[in-house]
Design a binder for these strands. Structure first.
Lengths: 140, 140
DNA sequence: CTGGATCCGAGATGATACTG
DNA sequence: CAGTATCATCTCGGATCCAG
């Protein structure tokens, strides 16, 4: 990385110069892009089919234009998302997954599916945990 | 969830009452706990073997006590991590994965491994992207 | 040693207005 | 429509001090 200064990137922040290297394996950054709040949703939506910007925004729901733009740019830079801007008026931009992106999305989806599947177990664990904690509080 | 008030939880914040339900599938929260900055590292370390608190802290490196505690509590509540506090002085607490946690950790590791493996491709994509952007800037 | 409680800054996210 | 820019907000995460 030769650029200096700051860049707004999805995930956690990054100062482009050196801070990232001295405390984090480089792949951790990609992992954070991919598992970021909106990164997960974008990848999974695009796994279904390509989307236009606003279309994607509606599909995800409750995401600001700014964050969606940022997320898409980050994923595009990492080579996971392909951006196809057609020079027409009004503007039309289609987003899709690259081959690399499809692999990433598949991994993410596997994790998401597992989570959804195991949700009942998690809920049960939570109730147990909360009940135990409540009793300890009552008994001081 | 019957508890009210706020709770510090790993991932993004959560107001325990209703805010989480009205805008997010519940499993998204678990997903965020698991893919959180420290959640990923904790799960992967514990996949190797059980650890004591300070031991885990050293193994991960560069994590504050606060965040490690928070992460472990969140994962424990979700039923992914088992906490074994021995009533001795000085205190000794061992952390390990539950069966559910081992499954989660395996998924996370799969994603992390994929990321590490594909890092060269990502780097190449980034260089291409940055070069293209630089030229567009130069040409205005 | 294992945390709990608190303060605080950096930065992530959102709302709004503006451009091509 | 697809963004960019700016401003306002919120909270994550680190540092510090304290307790059992």
């Amino acid at each position: 990385m030769t650029v200096s200064g700051k860049v707004e990137v999805v995930g956690r922040s990054e100062t482009v110069d050196a801070v990232d290297v001295e405390g984090m394996c480089p792949y951790r950054l990609v992992l954070e892009h991919v598992t970021s709040r909106w990164g997960v949703l974008v990848l999974m939506e695009l796994l279904v089919r390509p989307y236009r910007f606003s279309e994607l925004r509606r599909a995800i729901g409750r995401v600001s234009e700014k964050m969606l733009t940022q997320t898409l740019q980050t994923l595009e830079r990492d080579g996971l998302v392909h951006r196809d801007a057609k020079p027409v008026i009004p503007p039309r931009v289609d987003y899709s997954l690259t081959d690399l992106g499809r692999e990433a999305a598949a991994q993410v989806k596997a994790l998401a599916d597992w989570t959804a599947e195991r949700m009942p177990d998690v809920d049960r664990a939570r109730r147990t945990y909360d009940k135990a904690r409540a009793e300890r509080t009552r008994a001081q």
